[in-house]
Computed example of a mutant assay.
Amino acid sequence: MNRTDRLYGLVEELRAASPRPRSARRLAERFEVSVRTVERDLAALQESGLPIWAEPGRTGGYVIDASATLGPAGFTPDEALAVLIGLGALRHSPFRHSARTAARKLLAVMPDPDAARASAFASRVHFLERDEEPTAPVEFAEALRADRVVQLRYLDAAGAETSRDVEPLGSIEKDGQWYLIAWCRLRDGVRAFRADRMRSITVTDERPQTRTLRAEDLAIQYGRLRSVVDD
């Protein structure tokens, strides 16, 4: 997660907890950074004018004035339920942190009775998951949106580790498994990289050339490819 996303995430985390405080240590664990980094980020948010303050004491921490941030949203309970289900399905995806804060944001800006109904309905929806569900690295999301060449340390199907410079073109999810679709410079062609085989993901400063991803490049032998924005 880059710093901009983390700053937004901190605001949403504090808004969801308001008026209860969140300690810097708990926030650091939540965003997988050091306490010093969290304190520096919160100081930057305070300097930008956001109503965040620190409460002293053993049970103290940071608090935000939630009433001074977002206005009401025009979601019906059924629409909110649909959004919450969709976000809940991303629990093991590369977008899980953003999905969690988006769900909190949605409920925070709805009128309290509608938010309560949507939450109650959503609690009746369950996902049947495997005992060991693969969790995609969060850096996968940054690699997808950065529009930069990405360096991968990757385990191939035989278990051998390779180093790849790739140009991300998109992603595919199938049965809970996430794949980064990219032009692989090592293989000089389009390849699908499984998220659970990625050992490290480094986004470089190099912009790749423009490439068009065609369905035939993926050599999909079954199923139909559908974008999340398709009706």
Rank of each mutant, 00 (worst) to 15 (best):
Asn2Thr: 13
Asn2Cys: 03
Leu7Thr: 04
Leu10Ser: 07
Leu10Ala: 03
Glu13Gln: 12
Leu14Ala: 00
Ala16Glu: 15
Ala16Ile: 14
Ala24Ile: 07
Arg26Glu: 14
Leu27Lys: 06
Ala28Tyr: 04
Ala28Asn: 09
Val35Asn: 14
Arg36Gln: 15
Val38Thr: 01
Glu39Met: 06
Arg40Val: 04
Asp41Ala: 11
Asp41Gln: 12
Leu42Ile: 15
Ala43Val: 02
Glu47Asn: 14
Glu47Arg: 14
Ser48Met: 09
Ser48Asp: 08
Gly49Val: 11
Pro51Asn: 06
Trp53Ser: 10
Pro56Gln: 05
Thr59Cys: 12
Gly60His: 09
Val63Gln: 06
Ser67Asp: 15
Thr69Tyr: 10
Gly74Leu: 12
Gly74Phe: 10
Thr76Ile: 11
Thr76Ser: 14
Pro77Thr: 08
Asp78Asn: 13
Ala80Val: 08
Leu81Asn: 04
Ile85Thr: 13
Gly86Thr: 06
Gly86Ala: 09
Ala89Gln: 11
His92Thr: 11
His92Asp: 15
Ser93Tyr: 05
Pro94Ser: 10
Phe95Ser: 07
Ser98Asn: 05
Arg100Leu: 13
Ala103Pro: 10
Arg104Ser: 14
Leu106Ser: 06
Val109His: 04
Pro111Thr: 06
Ala118Leu: 07
Ser119Asn: 12
Phe121Ala: 14
Ala122Glu: 08
Ala122Tyr: 07
Ser123Val: 09
Arg124Ala: 08
Arg130Ala: 15
Pro134Trp: 05
Val138Lys: 04
Val138Trp: 02
Phe140Asp: 01
Ala141Ser: 13
Glu142Gly: 15
Ala143Pro: 05
Asp147Val: 03
Val149Glu: 05
Leu152Asp: 00
Tyr154Cys: 00
Leu155Asp: 07
Ala157Pro: 03
Ala160Cys: 06
Glu161Gln: 12
Glu161Met: 12
Asp165Ile: 01
Asp165Cys: 03
Glu167His: 14
Glu167Tyr: 04
Glu167Gln: 13
Glu173Ser: 15
Gly176Tyr: 04
Gly176Thr: 03
Gln177Leu: 15
Tyr179Trp: 13
Leu180Asn: 02
Ile181Gln: 06
Trp183His: 07
Cys184Lys: 05
Cys184Ser: 15
Leu186Gln: 13
Gly189Val: 12
Ala192Lys: 05
Ala195Ile: 01
Ala195His: 03
Arg197Cys: 01
Met198Gln: 03
Thr202Asn: 07
Thr204Lys: 13
Arg207Trp: 03
Thr210Asp: 14
Arg211Lys: 10
Arg214Phe: 10
Ile220Thr: 11
Leu225Gly: 06
Leu225Ala: 08
Arg226His: 14
Ser227Arg: 12
Val229Lys: 08
Asp230Glu: 15
